[in-house]
Nucleic acid binder design. Sequence first.
RNA 1: UCCCGAAUAGCUCAGCUGGUUAGAGCAUCUGACUGUUAAUCAGAGGGUCGCUGGUUCAAGUCCAGCUUCGGGAGCCA
Length: 479
Amino acid sequence: MFNTRTKIKTLLAQEATGQEVIVMGWVRSFRNNQFIALNDGSTNNNLQIVTELGLLDENTLKRITTGASLKVVGELIPSLGKGQKVEVKAKTVEVLGDCDGEKYPLQLKNRPSLEYLREVAHLRFRTNTFGAVFRVRHSLAFAVHKFFNDKGFVYLHTPIVTSSDAEGAGEMFRVTTLPLDNPPRKEDGSIDFAEDFFGKSANLTVSGQLEGELGAMAFSDIYTFGPTFRAENSNTTRHLAEFWMIEPEMAFYDIEDNMNLAEEFIRYIIRHAMENNREDLEFLAQRLAEEEKQLPQDKRSEMGLIEKLEFVLNNNFERITYTDAINILLDSPAYKKKKFQYEVKWGIDLQSEHERYLVEKHFKKPVIVTGYPAAIKAFYMRMNDDGKTVAAMDILAPGIGEIVGGSQREERLEKLVQRMEDMHVPVDEMQWYLDTRRYGSVPHAGFGLGFERMVQFVTGMGNIRDVIPFARTPKNCEF
RNA sequence: UCCCGAAUAGCUCAGCUGGUUAGAGCAUCUGACUGUUAAUCAGAGGGUCGCUGGUUCAAGUCCAGCUUCGGGAGCCA
């Protein structure tokens, strides 16, 4: 058995009584031919390994370079130096893997930029920032499952490859095995997808919601948590071509139940990270604070990262209707001073600048907007009694914008079919979906939460490409 | 896709209104030192100035196109 080591996170919490320990990890720095800062990814804190002069031969000393991997056997003792509580006095040091200093792209003392690290994304996990980000990401993902599991939701795996293009959530990636240079064609010259692998045109999913509704009609409460794809040519700090989405769907829920669940859910996973990743979050808060020092005073956030998260835990989200939102905007000093680039009037879709104003200037906390005009929302959203608005809800977060989009679904068959026809959704292809409304239809609701945007919110990272291990964006599919 | 900005050493950046051999800090390598904490000290190596074309006696510097990156907008989660 090779792995008899103790992880560094565990060792740093132990009482140092000179007990023998085995540690393995990667060299972060090597000072004075004597002091190795070793990291194994279990925590951002390094373990100091002390090698007494003369312990190691010349050759081994030369091989202990930044990035090299080591196996160290030694005694855990109280540190003689000031920077750390405990350290390991080495008995043996074995280089497991060499790391050529001339070629290694990560020399951390250079404080490489986030942009540069994106180019070496295969190595960036070894930095403090990305170590913290991806431990927090893991923790949030774990909390997602724990939250829903504890409430009795069924984790339903909706398909990645679909033939349905009804959701209209965006441009889709086509999945095909047809030859690109010479596809089979029908008599009218169009491509004959009957000859394709699935016998019809297929795409990568843009949402698991419709399939999720099928599950909710049997299990009552389900959720999906999986990759989602949009072939939009979006070049922003908050869009990816491949991202992870959480989509719960609940039978016997109305729009208010839906909002309550979403709010409880967001608080739960943030609290989980706060309780389990405190050190990483404090490191990220520090990083963010230093980054913001570069900004002019008026661009800096009023709250630090930790305060912001605590604020979200301790304050209810503001709930307003779309109509209220429009009225607040029309009454705002920003509107009167003509600060908005886009027109404000009932019926428009809220623009980024409007959402930012509501969230960051007016309420200064997350806001849930409900009751959007039917014309600007998807076909499956339930029509309100006014005949003009639908039971939709968006949760807007400071700095990120829309983090959740959800609705109570239209459970009445005739109204749903009418909406589909009005919005040119192919009713014939959607009979399987309409069956839910034919056979024991019930009021139900659900929402979608973009996981990476949540990770951005919790870690304070400004660019969504820095919160997913390997970002897929237009013109970029490395690694 | 649109608007703005950027691209100079492995990294982070200087390089002014065009003018000899393109600089700094860090990293790397060599040596010294040895309880260091972004260790310190001395020395060395390292560049097709993103690509293509143009203007000019002369282009890292000016112009055009392209590529990539960053910020903002749209689309959205």
